[in-house]
Structure formats: C-alpha cells, structure tokens
Amino acid sequence: MPIALASLAIAVLAGCGAPPELAEPTGVPTHTASPTTPGPSTAPATTPATAPPLATVTPTPDAGLVATACRNGPTGQRVLQLLRGQAGVLPANVRVQVRTGPLCAGDWQFTVLAVTGHEELQVVTRGKPSAPVLVTAGTDVCTIEVRATSPAGIRTLACDAGPANGPGA
C-alpha cells in the first residue's frame, strides 16, 4: 500500500506544473499591427524651451524676532527730543550721547543713552518713526507692558540682556 500511495502522490504532483503566468514565454507575440502612415505635420518647428534660472531665495527673519538698526528711523536725535520734550525725562542741561540704537523690531524701538554723571538710560519707544511714543525709560525697562506686548527682539534687549545692552544683544 505504501507504494500505491507514493505512486499516487507522484502522479498528482507530476500533473502540477508551474502556473501559466510563471512559465517562460515560448515565442514572440503573434499580434501584428498595421503600420500607420504619418500625415503632414502641422506643428511649427520650435527650439526646445529652457527653464528660467532659479532665483536664490534668502530667508529673512520676521521683523519682530530680532531687533536691528532702524532703517527708517527714529534717529537717536528724535529719541532725545522726545525725552527732553513732552516726556520730561531728561533736563535740557544734561549731556547725553546715543550709545546703542535705536534698534527696531516691528514698530517698537530700543535705545541706550550714555548720560554724563548718571547710569546709562535705556529707552523703549513704539509707533511711527517720525513720531515715536515713549513706552518706558530707565535703568530697568523690562516693564509688564514690554514683557507682554513688545516684539521678541525688543523683549530680549529690555528683559533678557540686562542693563548695559550693546549692539546686537
């Protein structure tokens, strides 16, 4: 009986070949297509188009993230006029020199003044370059308003850098 069973298994397995999709092709396809004759060309002859050169994109930081030298003002003199004028922070007879700035971030400005005979004076203003409005002035200008509403570049100068800030601080 074992021989009969083995013969049956061999017969069954012998009938199994590779599936047709796995079998090697035996010849070339028999399908023939009739050739088409090309018609007259109606497309105008053109030279291949070339892609325009890629422009170099330089990312720019957000105006409020970093305080940079003010391009359109206010000037240091304008800040001094504000402090000596309507703000009444500096008397007219005190000698003052702009040490840093104004540095701008968004519509805010930061300036450091060297005041003869006194500590440096930090000034935070905001608004139009031609008419800045005083936010605060003193040796520590990290007020609630500056912390809560100023752009990051001004907040870094006024609060994180501490007194005696320098350019690019």
Rank of each mutant, 00 (worst) to 15 (best):
D140Q: 14
P151Q: 08
T139R: 14
F110D: 03
L157R: 13
A161S: 14
S130C: 05
T136I: 11
E119L: 15
T111D: 03
D107K: 11
Q77I: 01
P163L: 15
V98P: 12
V94Y: 02
V146A: 00
W108P: 08
T139Q: 14
R155E: 13
E120M: 06
L121W: 03
I144W: 14
A87C: 10
N72R: 14
G117Y: 13
V124K: 05
L82I: 09
V94H: 03
A161C: 14
P132C: 00
E120H: 12
H118S: 14
G127C: 04
P163M: 12
R126I: 05
L134M: 05
N165T: 13
A164D: 13
V112F: 01
A87M: 01
V112I: 05
V115K: 04
G127F: 02
T116Y: 14
G76D: 04
G85K: 10
A105F: 04
A114P: 07
L90M: 00
L82V: 08
T156G: 11
P91C: 00
L90G: 02
V89Q: 05
C142T: 11
Q86W: 12
P74A: 08
A131T: 09
V79G: 04
D107I: 09
I154F: 07
T100N: 08
E120S: 11
G76F: 01
A105T: 03
A161H: 13
P163H: 15
S130Y: 09
R147F: 04
H118G: 05
R99V: 06
V96P: 04
V98E: 06
L103C: 12
R99P: 05
Q109D: 12
I154G: 09
E120D: 15
D107Y: 02
T75R: 12
V94G: 02
W108R: 09
P74S: 07
C159I: 01
P129C: 10
V96Q: 11
H118Q: 15
C142E: 07
P91N: 10
R95P: 01
E145V: 11
T100A: 10
R147W: 00
E145Y: 09
G162S: 06
P151I: 08
V112P: 02
R126D: 03
D160H: 09
D160A: 13
G73H: 14
E145F: 08
G138H: 05
V124D: 05
T149G: 01
A164P: 02
F110I: 06
T111A: 08
R71P: 15
A152Q: 09
V98W: 02
Q122V: 07
C104G: 10
T116L: 15
Q86P: 13
T100K: 05
S150C: 04
E145G: 07
